[in-house]
Design a protein around this nucleic acid. Structure first.
Length: 474
RNA sequence: GGCGGGGUAGCCAAGUGGUAAGGCAGGGCUCUGCAAAAGCCCCAUUCGUCGGUUCGAGUCCGACCCUCGCCUCCA
């Protein structure tokens, strides 16, 4: 009956039970983008995954409070800012806007809060202050502040719950960057990075001198500020398990270590990465796709979103252009069925059919088993098609089917575009063609059909009359 | 080296002890003046390999092979 999710903390399926004693409100935090460039199809997968989780929680009757951060200060950003000569805000605004546009085009629901790191510097400083006070953060010679994993553990903090790594046996030094040379231990991470000349104008004052936040601290500070010290669900891509999320736990629980033994987050869910054409996506392999690229190739948001929601979030997904073309066929199948249902239903309204909804729910309750859920939906579509063709479907049944789809699609969130307005000119040509057909002047009719097609529209004859659709190339 | 995913039809993919969902592609049919579109039907004696447990194994156990990822840039 209840939702089961795979919790990265326990590496097990767990019943999802919100912290809210009334069992009603659910607070979720999704790691948002670092705005230094256009996001790619892999990023999109993670955001669509988070959106699916939120939508399914809402479908299940929870009141969701959804926070997604915008990380707008960080090493790569600072480097790019220096290269471009723009101000930090000028630079990040471009990519933040582009991100929001992509996010919307995937029909992702807007989070209730989208805090920017640069607007929460004070919260970040306060949190670092608490960690300093606890004695689990320390300042090094250049002024930077680091989190001490050793001190955290010696005071009872548990480090490594997410990643399950043996830190005693880790080789120090391999990838420690130069600005971190005087850390006490290789695994320690920066909370506050002291200002260096390369940072340009990107710095803030703090009790420890001018500088900027480390990479992980903003998520701890902002999530706790908005959602409180403990919340239900934290989401992100699998690469964030370590170090980002591990460090978030340490910072957040470290700040009131010994005073509060509540876990920072109850459930952690991580989306797997995707590959493109069977290989890791990379610019050098030429298989690096941004959403813009796919739209430029004529694909629609609904097709990309379907493809990304057609396989389980914990499995590596192989994104292929073939798959995307297949998604187009699958989507048009659903679209056709819905159109026929609308014709039959007319103005009649009804409520969802219990049977298909409960089967769908059962599949999704099982850690979002979308493959199974889609199997149920397509079985259902086929049986509807059959009913429409064979026995006929009365308007009430058709309306019930449409209501069921709306309910299901409140979870899948497929943005079926409203049908394009058919231009007057095309309608006129189609009418002339009909007249020609009726007087059996097929040559004239075919010429008119070609003419219509050359203008980007396709006319289809069906038993119930003609249909005019936009003509898709590819 | 440590940790963790995977290997099911041409491709994608569900299925954790009872005899292989679903999607795409392909084939056939229906409808049609012809098309197109759509719909329906068909499409894995078999689940990486070899052993074992069991009345029964894709599912459990053991060994092996292959593949992908993480181990302080990353969605």
């Amino acid at each position: 009956m209840s939702i089961k999710v795979f919790n990265t903390l326990s590496r097990n399926l767990e019943d999802f039970i919100p912290l809210d004693p009334n069992g009603k409100q659910v607070d979720i935090y999704c790691c948002g983008p670092t705005v230094y460039g256009y996001i790619h199809i892999g990023n999109i997968r993670t955001f669509v995954f988070s959106d699916l989780v939120r939508r399914y929680l809402e479908f299940s009757g929870y009141e969701v409070r959804h926070v997604m951060n915008i990380t707008d200060v960080e090493d790569k950003i600072i480097r790019r800012v220096a290269e471009t000569g723009k101000s930090l805000t000028e630079f990040t605004q471009v990519y933040e806007k582009a991100f929001l546009r992509d996010f919307k085009s995937m029909n992702c629901l807007s989070p209730h809060h989208m805090p920017r790191a640069t607007e929460h510097i004070q919260s970040i400083i306060d949190l670092i202050g608490k960690l300093m006070h606890k004695g689990i953060a320390y300042q090094v010679q250049d002024g930077s502040i680091y989190f001490s994993i050793e001190k955290y553990r010696s005071k009872g903090g548990q480090y490594g719950r997410l990643i399950h790594l043996n830190f005693e046996e880790m080789r120090p030094g391999d990838r420690v960057s130069q600005d971190e040379y005087d850390k006490e231990s290789a695994a320690d991470f920066a909370l506050w990075k002291a200002r260096v000349p390369e940072d340009g104008e990107v710095y803030w004052p703090s009790p420890w001198g001018e500088g900027r936040p480390g990479w992980h601290i903003e998520c701890s500070a902002m999530s706790m500020k908005i959602l409180g010290r403990s919340f239900d669900l934290h989401l992100g891509g699998e690469d964030l398990v370590f170090p980002h999320h591990e460090d978030e736990i340490a910072q957040s629980e470290g700040a009131d270590l010994g005073e509060n033994d509540q876990p920072f987050v109850k459930y952690w869910m991580h989306g797997a990465h995707l590959q493109v054409e069977g290989r890791k996506m990379s610019k050098s392999l030429g298989n690096f796709h941004t959403l813009r690229d796919l739209f430029d190739q004529g694909f629609a948001g609904v097709e990309v979103r379907y493809l990304l929601t057609s396989s389980h979030y914990r499995e590596t997904f192989n994104f292929t252009m073939d798959g995307l073309r297949g998604a187009r066929s699958a989507m048009s199948r659903i679209k056709e069925c819905l159109e026929k249902l609308r014709e039959v239903a007319g103005e009649t309204k009804s409520t969802p059919t219990e049977e298909v909804i409960s089967r769908f729910t059962e599949a999704m309750d099982d850690d979002l088993n979308v493959s199974k859920a889609w199997g149920i939906v397509f079985d259902w579509i086929r049986s509807l098609n059959k009913q429409i063709a064979d026995t006929g479907l009365n308007p009430t049944q058709a309306a019930a089917a449409l209501a069921s789809w709306d309910r299901i699609n409140s979870v899948f969130g497929l943005p079926f575009d409203p049908s394009d307005e058919i231009p007057e000119e095309i309608l006129k040509l189609a009418e002339l063609r009909q007249e020609a057909r009726q007087s059996r002047e097929f040559e004239t009719a075919d010429k008119l059909r070609d003419q219509i097609q050359s203008k980007g529209w396709r006319v289809e004859d069906s038993p119930t009359g003609i249909k005019i659709k936009p003509f898709q190339i590819s």
